[in-house]
Design a protein around this nucleic acid. Structure first.
Length: 585
RNA sequence: GGCCCCGUAGCUCAGGGGAUAGAGCGACAGCCUUCUAAGCUGUUGGUCGCAGGUUCGAAUCCUGCCGGGGUCGCCA
């Protein structure tokens, strides 16, 4: 179904039939031969680089080889024209009949068109993993969307994907959360409270305090912290996670697994963190030692001390890393190692984590750890998402996290809608910073790529509504459309759309391979642009309109093409988690 | 100072071995008795940060600089 891969095979077969060999008589490496869409449409439908790649090993001139290959391919009935161009490109143009058969196959495949055909194995994508200390803020938004879209993309490309969320419910910050909730509890009981520096001031803890008061009455008020903490903490964490799940649902993000950090230390199989460290110790990767102080600015409270270190430098890290704090408790890194070991033991040799760019310094050590705990058989990839800068009509939006006065993810989704948020977060490479303007993303104009792409899909639906009225006799189902006289599609705009559609499988594959879901968004924008452009040509040239009562057979073929466009738009938008609407009123 | 990311049109950014480097915005000029003008067409605009290297071919890969951002033992 991928015509580029298809013709790649035909080219390789022709080369074998020609009996080409390397200058020394050895077999040629045909792996570097690619068949791809030429940048310039004037160069035809497919460009073959075989002659240039093989010229050196064969000791011959690229243009001579291209001419020879051109002769061998001339017998292919699907090829209408061939030409040798530039430094030795062989350009191919397909016949309308070949394009028609391609389109028919796309329609028969339906929503499966572009889906990976080979199984690519299991992969675990961990994203969001926001601390359960409050509602999600905009900072979490990009990672959530990128992770979710990447997981969708990998699934579409043929991986078996698990979407996972790591709940940091074991550190000191959840104790702080519990204390903050306890204050709200006292407040709910009528006390006047003052929230000291360092506790979470947000109003979102008020309902938690009220519910604690409802459940426990004054029962907790005279307990010592050691006694109320085990009650208040899990209750509050559960409330925060419920809130976060609602936020995620509003963003159209759903995880398969929520994994608790706390469960690592107090799970049914004992202390998993200790077990992970024991494993590293058994492998000779732990030792007591001292670290050099960091170069550059020395931390004020630096103190040379012997500590429990993991030999991460043996796996590519810059320095060895401590796994125990001075008070004997585990560092966050220690828990994280145990967590990634758990993922490995659950069968995930492929792990992808989505982090904020401020965690960039953490990448190497975590990758080192994954290598260490898996004996080198597991791989961790980390995608770093750069910051999102918020604007309102060109003016930066000020935020103060300390006062609790930050923009929540919910604020953004409620204001601009989930589709606009998701699409805009994906309309940029994730390692480039992103400007997000509330004004612009809600504009309903071509300046707004979300609406531009969605409108293209709506337009296809509109064309079909028109067709059902104007051409009542036609079968507009997939098989009916596939049976139309598709070789009537010969206009440059029509072939252009088919060529764009033909790229879909390779775009999916390349985007999945590169872990770059933004490529899907850009592809959809291009496809939408092709459709809008061709649609508009029907104004000057009525004979090109999709629905034309004077030429029902061509109309039928064009509707088949429009259906294929709609299919690809819908598939792509589904990967991005954006709706493909039938109307935009 | 070490490590990571970025540097492409006036602006925001795609392109990450292939031919004459693209899109949107901006600016300018057009297109509505016509399938949704929520749209389309054209014009304008570039020493791809700099210098070497690899290659038949480099914006793309490698090295070194320059500039911007992030980060740097017991925060998660």
């Amino acid at each position: 179904m991928d015509i580029f891969a298809d013709f790649g095979e035909r080219v390789r077969a022709s080369i074998k039939a020609l009996g080409w060999r390397a200058a020394d008589g050895a077999d040629l490496d045909l792996g570097r031969i690619v068949v791809e869409p030429p940048r310039d449409a004037a160069h035809g439908d497919l460009a073959v680089n075989a002659a240039m790649v093989l010229a050196k090993p064969m000791g011959r001139k690229p243009r001579d080889l291209a001419i020879e290959l051109m002769g061998a391919l001339a017998a292919d009935p699907d090829i209408a024209e061939t030409e040798v161009a530039g430094p030795g490109f062989l350009n191919l143009r397909l016949t309308p009949a070949a394009w028609g058969r391609f389109l028919a196959r796309v329609l028969i495949s339906g929503p499966a068109y572009g889906r990976g055909v080979v199984a690519r194995g299991r992969v675990n994508v961990e994203y969001v993993s926001a601390n359960p200390t409050g509602p999600m803020h905009v900072g979490h938004c990009r990672g959530a969307v990128v992770g979710d879209a990447l997981a969708n993309l990998l699934g579409f490309a043929g991986h078996e994907v698990t979407k996972e969320y790591y709940i940091n419910d074991a550190g000191a910050q959840v104790d702080v959360l519990a204390r903050s909730a306890f204050l709200r509890y006292r407040e709910a009981l009528g006390e006047t409270i003052e929230i000291p520096e360092g506790l979470y001031p947000g109003d979102y803890l008020k309902p938690v305090g009220s519910r604690l008061a409802e459940i426990h009455g004054r029962g907790l008020i005279d307990l010592s912290e050691a006694d109320w903490l085990p009650i208040v903490k899990p209750f509050t964490i559960d409330a925060m996670m419920a809130m976060i799940r609602e936020d995620l649902a509003a963003l159209n993000v759903v995880h398969d697994v929520f994994f608790s950090e706390k469960s690592l230390q107090a799970g049914p199989t004992g202390d998993r963190v200790a077990q992970a460290i024991a494993k590293l110790t058994a492998d000779g990767l732990m030792y007591q030692g001292r670290l050099e102080p960091p170069k550059g600015q020395l931390p004020e409270d630096w103190e040379d001390r012997e500590q429990t270190l993991f030999r991460s430098t043996a796996f590519g890290d810059d320095v060895d890393r401590p796994l125990m704090k001075s008070d004997g408790s585990y560092t966050y890194f220690a828990s994280d190692i145990a967590y990634h070991l758990d993922k490995f033991e659950r069968g995930f040799g492929e792990q992808i984590d989505i982090w904020g760019a401020d965690h960039g310094g953490y990448v190497k050590r975590m990758q080192s750890a994954v290598k260490a705990i898996s004996g080198g058989s597991a791989r961790l990839e980390v995608l770093l998402c750069q910051l999102v800068k918020l604007f309102r009509a060109g003016e930066p939006v000020k935020m103060s996290k300390r006062s609790g006065d930050f923009v929540t993810l919910r604020d953004v989704v409620d204001e601009v809608g989930v589709d606009a948020v998701r699409f805009m977060m994906l309309f940029r490479k994730s390692d480039a910073p992103l400007d997000f303007d509330f004004q612009k993303v809600t504009e309903q104009s071509k300046d707004n790529p979300v609406f531009y792409v969605q409108y293209a899909h709506a337009r296809t639906a509109s064309v079909f509504a028109q067709a059902r009225e104007a051409l009542p006799g036609f079968d507009l189902g997939e098989s009916g459309l596939a049976g139309a006289e598709l070789d009537r599609l010969t206009d440059v705009g029509e072939i252009g759309l088919l060529k764009r559609i033909a790229q879909w499988p390779r775009v999916v594959e390349a985007a999945a391979e590169a872990r770059e879901p933004h490529r899907i968004a850009f592809f959809l924008h291009d496809l939408a642009s092709d459709l809008h452009g061709h649609w508009n040509r029907g104004k000057d040239l009525p004979q090109l309109r999709f629905v034309n009562v004077d030429d029902p057979l061509s109309s039928h073929a064009r509707l088949a093409m429009v259906r294929a466009v709609a299919q690809v738009l819908a598939s792509g938008l589904a990967i991005l988690g954006v709706k493909a609407p039938d109307e935009m009123r």
